[in-house]
């Protein structure tokens, strides 16, 4: 048995089962018709404001889905947000530019944007070079995207997804171009730059919440509700464990340590 099961990681298994159970239960409830309440995020209102501004100015909207590949959860959340942004932009028959850092992500975003224009009744308005691949190298991508900002002068820029060292370069150039900027990332090291240089920022997990809120997909809403339940339990464990630990009982802390 020991050859197949790592007993040191039993706490991991219990944790995974507990979290999965919570999420599965709330997802199941949502699919049965229960509508979980999700509070509105201020940055989501900014999506509409930014698109409205672009329409008024008659300028394009730029959407950057991060620099990570499709296997990254942030990229998947970004594609959900892109779907909503693309539908709004397409309904006004405005151009939506989406430069990509990864070829697989590009094929996905291309599909999303093309469908959005078709859904909005303007399939002819979609041009294949709206969604383009620049390059895999992050700073090469940043140089290319900055060039697009300066030449196309978009009225609104969205940075939604996983960003690395190029985040500040992009956001600073976007700021210099005069665009209204909305960012969203769960990459903790890059969040400060977006907070400092963008008009609105979806911080960390808000990115996933935004994706669920905008799509109103029962699976995503239920999953978010399940994660909130897990957070409540974690907060309880922290308080309970801290009080016990301060009194000299270490078993809660020991259970969590491999």
């Amino acid at each position: 048995m020991d050859a197949f099961f790592c007993w040191d990681k039993l706490n991991n298994l219990i944790g995974v089962l507990f979290i999965s159970g919570c999420i599965a239960w709330h997802t199941f409830q949502a699919r049965r018709g229960a509508r979980p309440f999700i509070r509105r995020l201020p940055a989501l209102g900014a999506l509409d404001d930014a698109i409205g501004r672009a329409v008024e100015m008659g300028k394009p909207v730029l959407y950057i889905p991060g620099v990570a590949d499709i296997d990254d959860a942030q990229t998947l959340a970004s594609v959900s947000v892109l779907e909503r942004v693309a539908e709004d932009v397409a309904s006004y028959d405005m151009p939506l530019l989406v430069p990509n850092c990864c070829s697989v992500v590009m094929s996905m975003t291309q599909e999303v944007v093309r469908s959005a224009y078709a859904k909005a009744g303007h399939p002819e308005a979609f041009q294949s070079d709206y969604v383009r691949y620049l390059c895999d190298e992050q700073f090469g991508f940043a140089a290319g995207a900055s060039g697009i900002m300066m030449r196309e002068r978009p009225a609104a820029i969205f940075y939604i997804g996983n960003f690395l060292g190029e985040a500040l370069i992009l956001a600073e150039n976007g700021n210099a171009s005069g665009a209204i900027q909305v960012a969203g990332t769960a990459t903790v090291s890059q969040l400060p730059f977006f907070v400092a240089s963008c008009d609105y920022t979806l911080i960390g997990e808000e990115l996933y919440a935004a994706s669920a809120y905008l799509s109103q997909d029962p699976m995503q809403l239920g999953s978010l509700k399940g994660q909130d339940a897990v957070k409540a339990v974690i907060m309880f464990i922290i308080v309970f464990g801290t009080v016990l630990y301060s009194l000299g009982f270490t078993w809660v802390k020991d259970l969590l340590t491999p």
Binding site: N11, N12, G15, I19, I234, I237, I238, G241, T242, V243, Y245, S246, V252, K253, L256, T257, P258
Partner: peptide, 13 residues
């Protein structure tokens, strides 16, 4: 998750 929760459990006195 586990390591972060464990590290947050600290002695308050």
């Amino acid at each position: 998750v586990l390591a972060q929760v464990s590290d947050t459990i600290v002695s308050l006195w």
